[in-house]
């Protein structure tokens, strides 16, 4: 707490406002938790600590939702999407920032054009494309399109980073005898670590939470992402409020846990991600 932030009335107002915002932010979670602990089959009240908390509801939701399989499926999808996306976006960012002249700005603009594109705008043809590839209802139906859809942001992000790396380093590496490929791996990638880290976090979150693609392209909830599976879960158990709330909390737990662990990195990534995206 800084010295200026302790006494003035303004700060007090701000503090109260922030605390109010925090309460508003947390209430839905608390409300879900209280409902998740209510006895099975009852219709609980908004926020009311149950007399007899049914922690067993979580166990039941875990089994009903087949959480173990879901975790596996989501992890497989993330592993399929994130490393490749980060790799090829880093390469392209380097290529665009360091190897091209102004003449090729159009190429960059083509990438940037996709930045504001809502996924909904391409979901219909994607469905037919994925079907033609014979990938419908497999995890690749989510993995491959996502890699492409992430390219505008990822390339934009990495290019912005590489523009900031002094060009002298590239030249020094060339004189030291590095090929472009070696320079990329031995000089540029180690220096890009922070940018790569942030990008990885963002892509991880977006993939894990991806909903539209799984809903449209994959029927079997067990092949979907966590978020996509949550849709199916709601469709099936939507009337059993305690179970639904317990399931939802379980499904959002992994990202929240990771977030709490890497709070600083996540916040930095999300803020920069917003500014640049």
């Amino acid at each position: 707490m800084t010295a200026t932030a302790t006494t003035t009335p303004n700060t007090l107002i701000a503090r109260s406002l922030i605390i109010l915002l925090m309460i508003v932010t947390l209430l839905p979670f608390l409300s879900m938790l209280s409902a998740a602990l209510a006895p099975q089959g009852t219709y609980p009240n908004g926020l009311q600590w149950p007399a007899d908390p049914q922690w067993g509801n979580f166990v039941r939701a875990f089994e009903v939702a087949k959480m173990d399989q879901l975790l596996l499926s989501s992890t497989l999808i993330v592993l399929g999407v994130v490393p490749i996306s980060v790799l090829i976006a880093t390469m392209a960012g380097y290529g665009l920032a360091k190897l091209t002249t102004n003449k090729y700005k159009w190429l960059y603009l083509v990438f940037v054009f996709g930045l504001t594109l809502p996924f909904e705008a391409v979901i219909t043809p994607l469905y037919y494309e994925v079907r033609a590839l014979g990938l419908l209802n497999t995890r690749f139906a989510i993995i491959l399109p996502l890699i492409g859809l992430y390219m505008p942001f990822s390339v934009y992000w990495m290019r912005a980073h590489f523009l900031n790396v002094p060009h002298d380093l590239t030249e020094a590496a060339q004189l030291d005898g590095a090929t472009r490929w070696k320079e990329f791996w031995l000089v540029q990638v180690p220096l890009a670590r922070p940018a790569i880290m942030s990008l990885t976090i963002l892509l991880f979150l977006w993939t894990w939470n991806q909903f539209l693609l799984p809903v449209v392209l994959v029927q079997d909830p067990m092949q979907r992402t966590m978020a996509g599976a949550l849709g199916a879960f709601q469709g099936q158990w939507g009337t059993d409020i305690p179970l639904l709330c317990a399931g939802s909390l379980l499904i959002l737990a992994p990202t929240v846990a990771l977030f709490l662990l890497f709070q600083r990195q996540f916040v930095a990534a999300l803020m920069q991600g917003a500014v640049k995206g």
């Binding site: 392209a92 190429l107 594109l117 043809p125 494309e129 491959l144 390219m151």
Partner: peptide, 18 residues
């Protein structure tokens, strides 16, 4: 060569559907 992989992915799953 550096830009191609990203561009191919982008072209296949964004530009083409568009």
């Amino acid at each position: 060569l550096f830009v191609a992989p990203a561009f191919i992915a982008y072209a296949a799953f964004v530009l083409a559907p568009l």
